[in-house]
Structure formats: C-alpha cells, structure tokens
Design a protein around this nucleic acid. Sequence first.
DNA 1: TATCCTTTTGCGACTAAGTTGCATTAATTT
DNA 2: AAATTAATGCAACTTAGTCGCAAAAGGATA
Lengths: 123, 123
Amino acid sequence: MLQQIKTLCEQHNVKVTNARSSILEVLKNAGAPMNYEQIKEKMKMPMDKATFYRNIAKFESLGIVHKFESDDRKWYFELSSTTHAHFICETCHQITCMDVHLGEVAGEVKSIVLKGTCKECKA
Amino acid sequence: MLQQIKTLCEQHNVKVTNARSSILEVLKNAGAPMNYEQIKEKMKMPMDKATFYRNIAKFESLGIVHKFESDDRKWYFELSSTTHAHFICETCHQITCMDVHLGEVAGEVKSIVLKGTCKECKA
DNA sequence: TATCCTTTTGCGACTAAGTTGCATTAATTT
DNA sequence: AAATTAATGCAACTTAGTCGCAAAAGGATA
C-alpha cells in the first residue's frame, strides 16, 4: 500500500483497512472520475458494493473524495483536489476535467458539471 | 390552454395533446427547475409517469425542454432558454438559476450545474 | 359513417444504482 | 480473555426511470 494513502487516512482519523486503501489506490491512479463498476474492475480484491458505498460516503464526508452524477444515473468519484469542472459529452459520455473561472457565485462551490457535446462528437 | 404553448408545439411539429400542454403549462409557470413529482403535483389532470417521461423525452430531443440531475438522483426539467447555470445547495437542496461566464470550453455546452453550499446554509 | 393506419396513453412488469438491516468478523480497550 | 466498538458481506429492499403491450384517440381516405 502506498504510504501516501496511509497518511491521507491518518490525517482524517480513518482506520486504514484493505477495502479503504484499495479504493483510494484506484482513485489515486485514475486519470478521470470513475464510477463504482469501473473502480471495482480496477481493484485487485473483491469488494461488496455496500462496503464500497459506505466507505465512499465516509471519504466524502471527510472531504477526501468528491462525487457527482453523470448523465447515466451513476455516481462518479475522484480524489478531492482544487475545484475544477467536468465536461460530460452527452454523445460519447466521455468525462473530461477542465478549468473554468466563474464570476461571482452565490455560495461555496464544490463541484461544477458542464454537459453538452464535445468537439469530437460535434465534428 | 395557453396559445403560447400551442404555438410552441406547432413550431416543433408536435401534436398538441392534453398531456403535453399540461406538462408545458406547469413548466411555463415554474420559477425554478422541477422534477417529476413536483410537476405532477401542479398538474390538474392525472398522468401516468410513462406518459410524462415519454413526452419529456420528446420535448428534450426537440430542444423545448432541458434536463439535468440534482444530487437526489432525480431529474429536473425546465423550459429551454439561454444557457444558464444552476446552483444546487447540498444542504437545503434548493436550486437557483444563475449566470456564469466560462472561458474557453471544449465543446458545445448545454447545461451547467454547480453544487456546494448556498449563502444561507453557509451562514 | 365505416375502415384503415398512426400516434398517444395507461397499466403493469421490469431494471439497476444505490441503501439498509443484520449477523459475522476484525480490531481496540480494559 | 472478555467486552466494546467498528468494518465487512450478504441479501433484501427502495425507487426513479424504462419498456412491452394492448387499448384509446386522432387523422386520412373513400
């Protein structure tokens, strides 16, 4: 297990279990947000979905992980980092991360999701 | 039925039925995006959810109506207008419309959803 | 008006992501 | 070692949205 992940858990007072480090490791290596199925596929160990979602919920409440819904009725997860936007193409369903800067906003923004048609699908 | 709605359907070559005008009328009077349950409540006539979703899907494909997902796993609908953003408060679940201007974006944007904590809940 | 054809609607069964209850196991404390 | 607490796995459940199909509505033709 990566020391980095162990530290991450310890910083947030979460016990480091196999399930937890396994989830975090996959997210650490992910290039884009992933849903449950995708994460499960990448994991070396089998894991019940209840365990998965419960741990994800914990990570979320601690601010370690961040989630949003795509247009397929599935949650997508990623390690928290600086607030950035996700562009979801409604045609090819690809999710890409991007920077946007908003003007004035009515509150504290935690996630930004843009939907539409990406350049490739538009062409 | 409002003449405005009849015209809207005719412009898009959609037959005007009771179900359709009923849905559009509610959306016309809505101050914010609404989900199926909320729309159903506001409708004077009973309507099967299959009928509702099928008509909404048609409206969507014609660009009359626009939908997005909130954080409650429900779809919210509104009449199409200029592309604007929705701020969803994860605490009070209120949805507010707002203008943002993005910089350069990788494609054609159809919806923008921001999630976070609104000013009231933050306070 | 009767016949044919297409579209819309309603019902009920279905789908599937995510949740919950509960018993089991693992870890921690005393 | 016993007792308490937390994490896990299983199975049953929830529920927004979908789908198949038959009935009803509407339009066109004659």
